[in-house]
Nucleic acid binder design. Structure first.
Length: 825
RNA sequence: GCGAGAGUGGCGGAAUUGGCAGACGCACCAGACUUAGGAUCUGGCGGGCAACCGUAGGGGUUCAACUCCCCUCUCUCGCACCA
């Protein structure tokens, strides 16, 4: 093979990347006359270099982007950097450098890596969230949210990671450990800024029913996280006091069975209600619970324990005097931190009552049975018929729920409420490398927003990284000490920065208008592009980022910035990249380096294998031999095109009217493949089967002979279509071959071809013949063959006769164009 | 425990509406070319000598079941003392 004919991915990939960049092939502008398609992949954290997860994520996105573009859409396909965050700070401490230097160097390197992959981004829209031109608008938004009470400060117990030396949001704590470094999270009382995401809890939940483009499991996770439950708040008057304990319950139908009260050990009334002679015991208990870490305390098998306070409250509907306990399983942060205990109908209360010998009253009887408190071995938690419940006796407990709630409201003893598991989003971080919270604290005026004219608060560069903990900003007097914008007296600036999830909650809006200098978003442009038609990323953000981004979208809508309710119409959560049965990690030594991969095989092979080895939402098993297979396939494509080059270039115009049977069969294969690839890309995102279909076609084309009169023309059509079909997957090799076939334009700019319906139509059909459901023979019939004739032919078939001889034909089933099933016996 | 998803050759995976199970690729085997082959090409490749048996296991519906229904097992993910 001559040097000219050898496939050299390194050369041709660089050539075409330069070509696309020079011509700004993928640069887009708003054009209301065209249908838009906003395609987005989750932007990366600039950690240093891309990993195989990125390769897969962005390969998937690029196929969609290039395909939609060929389909005629005005495709917005941007890329940027989630550039604030702690690793930059840690690296700065370690290398005695600066987070900004580290970050921008990483961005430069990773941008190069992405460009080497031939991804169809509009690089003119690139953003980095650590750039003041980006984060300045976030500060403005923060202040708008502050004005409307959507951002507020409160003293509270917060999740504290001792290793990262910062606060974590609830969403960033996994099994009691830091989501990033896995250290055990502690509780610390601090003044923190919060975003009032709970104000949108109902809408965030309701919309999960209106998002058919999202995977059900992500929606379920979000619903669980929001955790809406409907019930009642009921006041239990305290014995010998004028105040009451308020509980939240979803089971007001069991109210008549409440025999004692359980409070969280952290409940504000806990010590107040403790009788002097019980004080020592209660304090010891509270101390013990506080020392127990949260992981153990919330484990299911954790033993229920409590302590009697010595005080009583009154069941508002029965008048029963109920002892008040502190219980280790009652959580102060959920509901009111107090639980009315109904041991007969709640398993936890039942176990607690057994342990402390507390009374049991049955108020719901199951269908056809009668519970006796003396013999019960577990709580009965299902529905049933009300008993011992005064005026509600005899009602079905399901119906009584509503009736009791109404009655409590009438009597002024309680009210219907909705309770959420979702907490407000704590956004303060005691770190340097983040967006400064634009607030100034003044002795006289309190928390004062930084005035508009002083925005943005620029993150100072001249800080020292000692690694000693605490935010470097807090030690920088030049930053910290400012006069109060209101009264002019000496004041101090907020030195906490915002959680980096704040930046990723609106970056998709900024891509619509990255150069806009008048504000956060240019409404006209954003209205054109939003919402994102297809979002692609990992499942690990199912709650965190995807919930925050939905929240921000709704806030920005209500502030008038944008017009949509939801940011992402369709969500694809791609699977992980696995090797040797485990997620790639340095410690396991199973990491594949994208640079080495591209150097050895080229970007087209790397992309092709990422797409071919598994459907996108499943985990992908990385396998070097499989990569080899993809590389071989591309070499075969390369050779095939060159083999037919001269025949194709001298070919006449295709005349479908005068084709031989063999030529028609070849065209049928080509157009059937085109139909399948189009369907797989357009409707199903099934890249693996689309590629398999093209491989199959390749096998057909390789076997094709060129002795037929119109072979050149047929082959020219076949190769053109083959390259167009493959273009979204392997853009470089196809551009190169497209050019070598004599085309002058850019393949990426060609419209996606339509298959020829006439060419696809079969002339003959292969009918499967079964006897008693088992495949026995096959029959070739002309299209539209008469049913009776096919049946007769089937029955006369020699191979069929072997199985029907001597038997009675009971029935013959004919599925037109598919099969004949002969029932004999 | 609850919820969701999955279980198909040696491996990754196909089978779109109940209609040829195993497409495509990898691995493997044989052959060709070759000084050579970890290159390339050609052919084979679920099990069984066969009748037949095969989509986690068992039952059912149907002319026909990987696909629908019931039961069981296993795995993955999510939630989990949330009152």
């Amino acid at each position: 093979m001559s040097a000219e004919e050898k496939y050299t991915p390194g050369e041709i990939e660089a050539k075409w990347q330069q070509y696309w960049a020079d011509r700004k092939t993928f640069t887009v502008t708003e054009d209301t006359s065209r249908q838009k398609y906003y395609l987005l992949e989750m932007f990366p954290y600039p950690s240093g270099r891309i990993h195989m997860g990125h390769v897969r994520n962005y390969s998937i996105g690029d196929v969609v982007g290039r395909f939609k573009r060929m389909r005629g859409f005005n495709v917005l396909h941007p890329m940027g950097w989630d550039a604030f965050g702690m690793p930059a700070e840690n690296a700065a401490i370690k290398n005695n450098s600066h987070p900004a230097v580290w970050t921008y160097e990483n961005i430069a390197y990773m941008r190069g890596q992405l460009k080497q992959m031939g991804l169809s981004y509009d690089w003119d829209r690139e953003i980095a969230t650590c750039d003041v031109s980006y984060y300045r608008w976030e500060q403005k938004l923060f202040l708008e949210m502050y004005k409307r009470g959507l951002a507020y400060k409160k003293q509270s117990f917060v999740n504290w990671c001792p290793s990262c030396e910062t606060v974590l949001a609830n969403e960033q704590v996994e099994d009691g450990a830091c989501w990033r470094c896995d250290s055990e999270v502690q509780q610390k009382e601090l003044e923190q800024w919060f975003f009032r995401i709970t104000a949108y809890a109902d809408e965030l939940l309701d919309y999960t029913a209106k998002m058919p483009g999202w995977p059900e499991r992500v929606l379920v996770m979000q619903r669980n996280w929001i955790g809406r439950s409907t019930g009642c708040e009921i006041d239990f008057p305290l014995d010998a006091r004028t105040d009451a304990i308020r509980v939240f319950t979803t089971r007001q139908d069991t109210l008549f069975g409440a025999t004692f009260m359980s409070l969280a050990p952290e409940h504000p009334l806990a010590l107040q209600l403790t009788a002097p002679d019980r004080r020592a015991e209660v304090e010891a208990f509270i101390d013990k619970v506080k020392k127990t870490d949260r992981i153990r305390r919330t484990a299911e098998d954790f033993e229920k324990e409590g302590v009697f306070t010595g005080s009583y409250c009154i069941n508002p509907v029965t008048g029963r005097r109920m002892p008040i306990f502190l219980a280790n399983f009652v959580l102060v942060e959920y509901g009111t931190g107090a639980v009315m205990a109904v041991p007969t109908h709640d398993q936890r209360d039942f176990e607690f009552a057994q342990k402390y010998d507390l009374p049991l009253v049955v108020v719901i009887q199951p269908e056809g049975a009668s519970l006796d408190p003396a013999t019960m071995t577990a709580a009965y938690t299902e529905a049933g018929t009300m008993v011992n419940s005064g005026r509600f006796d005899g009602q079905k407990s399901d119906n009584a729920k509503e009736a009791i709630a109404d009655w409590l409201e009438q009597e002024g003893k309680g009210k219907k409420t909705v309770n959420f598991r979702l907490r407000d989003w704590g956004v303060s971080r005691q770190r340097y490398w983040g967006n400064p919270i634009p607030i100034i604290y003044c002795e006289c005026c309190g928390a004062v927003p930084v005035p508009d004219k002083d925005l943005p608060v620029v993150l100072p560069q001249d800080v020292v990284f000692t690694g000693e903990g605490g935010s470097p900003l807090a030690k920088l007097d030049a930053f910290r000490k400012v006069p109060c914008p209101q009264c002019g007296k000496p004041a101090r600036r907020e030195t906490d920065t915002m959680d980096t999830f704040v930046e990723s909650s609106w970056y998709f809006l900024r891509y619509c208008c990255p150069d806009f200098e008048e504000g956060m978003v240019d409404k006209a442009r954003t209205d054109y592009w939003m919402s994102v038609d297809q979002y692609i990323g990992g499942i690990e953000h199912a709650v965190l980022h995807l919930l925050y981004a939905r929240f921000f979208t709704k806030v920005l809508r209500d502030l008038g910035y944008i017009s949509v309710d939801e940011p992402f119409i369709n969500l694809l959560t791609q699977g992980m990249v696995i090797k040797d049965g485990a997620k790639m990690s340095k410690s396991k030594g199973n990491v594949v380096d994208p640079d080495a991969l591209i150097k050895k095989y080229g970007a087209d092979t790397a992309r092709l294998f990422s797409l071919f080895a598994a459907p996108p939402e499943k985990d992908l098993d990385w396998n070097e031999q499989g990569v080899d297979g993809c590389y071989r396939f591309l070499n075969r494509v390369w050779k095939l095109v060159h083999e037919f080059l001269s025949a194709v270039q001298g070919a006449a115009v295709l005349d479908v009217a005068v084709l031989t049977d063999e030529e028609r069969a070849l065209r049928r294969a080509v157009h059937k493949t085109l139909r399948k690839v189009t369907e797989d890309l357009d409707e199903r995102f099934r890249f693996n089967t689309a590629i398999a279909a093209v491989m199959e076609l390749m096998n057909v084309l390789q076997g094709a002979k060129l002795t037929l009169p119109q072979a050149g023309a047929v082959m020219k059509e076949a190769l053109d279509l083959l390259l167009q079909m493959l273009a979204p997957f392997v853009p470089h090799i196809t551009e190169e071959l497209w050019q070598r076939l004599g085309h002058t334009g850019c393949l990426a700019d060609t419209p996606w071809p339509a298959y020829d319906a006439a060419a696809v139509a079969d002339e003959e059909l292969l009918i499967v013949i079964q006897v008693n459901g088992k495949l026995r023979s096959k029959l070739s019939v002309t299209i539209g063959a008469d049913e009776e004739a096919v049946k007769t032919q089937a029955l006369a078939d020699d191979k069929v006769k072997v199985f029907t001889d001597g038997k009675q034909i009971r029935k013959v089933i004919y599925v037109p164009g598919k099969l004949v099933n002969i029932v004999a016996g």
